[in-house]
Design a binder for these strands. Structure first.
Lengths: 127, 127
DNA sequence: CTTGACATTCCAGTAAGTGGAAGGATTAGT
DNA sequence: ACTAATCCTTCCACTTACTGGAATGTCAAG
């Protein structure tokens, strides 16, 4: 499987597949005589695994850890859970932060006349 | 006012103050004989304005626009409101996205035994 | 007069890719 | 067999918004 086919099968752009090989995340198992990267089913599964983990917001480094656990049939689910819990806390922290921003900004937007006059509570709040 | 004093007064690190000058966001009004940047009250107000706008999550480019409006005594509050509304929608989009992630991840974390066995619904979901 | 705190510039790195150029390989169609 | 289109390769630059550090210059105090 050339990189284009692996890209389609995994759902990642070829650029990203190549990038993941560059940083040693998911390497192509071999190269053809012409130097083309050659992906097999197992590599494609790993690429798709990483894609899904990234969609969950796991960092590349976390993906590295998850991938190692994915490949380790003797893993402890506790190890996976720890990573996921850390990510969950991060999400919750970000949610609280966004909620504060949202509420204050919504308040300001509501208070702003939005007409041709220069008076603006949004600017006032920033000044 | 040297950059250190302007930094303290505005609440931005000196590195950032220098960076904002480099990208033409908030330039120091003048330089001393030795080449030190010299900030006045007005420049410090702009720096602090940008700091607060950044805390609201406005991008540097949005800050550029807000700063121009801040300085324009003939501004229309409608122009400010447009920028703020765009930011608000962005926040709401991100909130929805995070909520989805949160719910699914929380579900998975709850379903994971977190013990020494390898069976793990989190890994299963990513595989 | 020296020490310490400040200032300067420039280079490099961060996260996670994306875009593009220059050039080689393969495949389809004629 | 030739050619065009598509695919692949590497390498370099760019993105966001800074941050860290090195080498060097300046200023105020004791």
């Amino acid at each position: 499987m050339n990189i284009g086919a692996a890209s389609k099968a995994s759902g990642l752009p070829t650029k990203t597949v190549r990038y993941y090989a560059d940083i040693g995340l998911v390497e192509a198992p071999s190269r053809t005589g012409a130097g083309y990267r050659s992906y097999d089913e197992s590599a494609v599964r790993k690429l798709a695994f990483v894609r899904r983990a990234r969609e969950f917001g796991f960092s590349i480094d976390e993906c590295r850890g998850l991938l190692a656990l994915y490949e380790d049939s003797n893993r402890s689910s506790a190890d996976v859970k720890r990573i996921a819990e850390a990510r969950l806390e991060e999400i919750e922290r970000k949610q609280r932060e966004l909620q504060c921003l949202h509420d204050e900004l919504e308040h300001l937007v509501a208070a702003c006349a939005g007409d041709g006059r220069p008076d603006c509570p949004i600017i006032d709040r920033l000044a």
